[in-house]
């Protein structure tokens, strides 16, 4: 079974099992956000939205992104083949060699597609054209924010032995 499941690992760049868990995890969190978040905001106003961030994003962070260790092995358990073993549903490449793919990716694309398909058939092109500059500004902002944050690794201070 293990051999069969890892047949296409090299072609895909990830093992097929990881593809299955990633798709399932992405589906779960996006589905719950689309169904519940809007309703809770309607019911409780901004308090509902802030509650959602805890009970939806917090809970699905544990499902999708947790790595082993309860403050003990936070860097993950070493894998014999290199890298670290992960227990979250969304696959991450080997630590230090692959960028972090957040579940924000699937939530954002899911909500975007959701509102796209809610639109009338003839108006979808215009909707996409209207939203593209906003999405582009946001991705640019994310790149700048994340990139500047990443620069702190270059300050040279080595206070607690962290890289």
């Amino acid at each position: 079974m293990h051999q069969f499941l890892s047949t296409y690992s090299d072609t895909l760049g990830m093992s097929p099992v990881s593809a299955i868990t990633t798709i399932f995890g992405a589906f779960c969190v996006t589905f719950v956000v689309i169904i519940c978040w809007g309703k809770l905001v309607e019911d409780f106003g901004p308090k509902g939205g802030m509650l959602c961030s805890a009970i939806i994003v917090g809970t699905f962070w544990v499902v999708n992104h947790k790595l082993p260790g309860f403050g003990i092995n936070p860097e993950g358990l070493a894998h014999p083949d290199g890298g670290t073993k992960q227990f979250g549903l969304i696959y991450q490449g080997f630590k230090g060699a692959a960028p972090w793919v957040d579940m924000g990716t699937c939530i954002a694309i899911g909500l975007w597609c959701h509102s796209l398909f809610l639109g009338k058939r003839g108006e979808r092109g215009a909707l996409v054209r209207e939203s593209l500059p906003r999405v582009l500004a946001m991705i640019l902002g994310g790149i700048v924010g994340g990139g500047v944050l990443g620069l702190v690794g270059w300050t040279g201070a080595n206070l607690f032995g962290y890289k």
Binding site: A97, I109, I139, G146, G147, L149
Partner: peptide
Amino acid sequence: LWADQGFAISAAGIAWAVVRF
């Protein structure tokens, strides 16, 4: 169309790891 802050987190996650690690 709904533009979620997830786009920003997604882009930041990649940019952060590329610059930092």
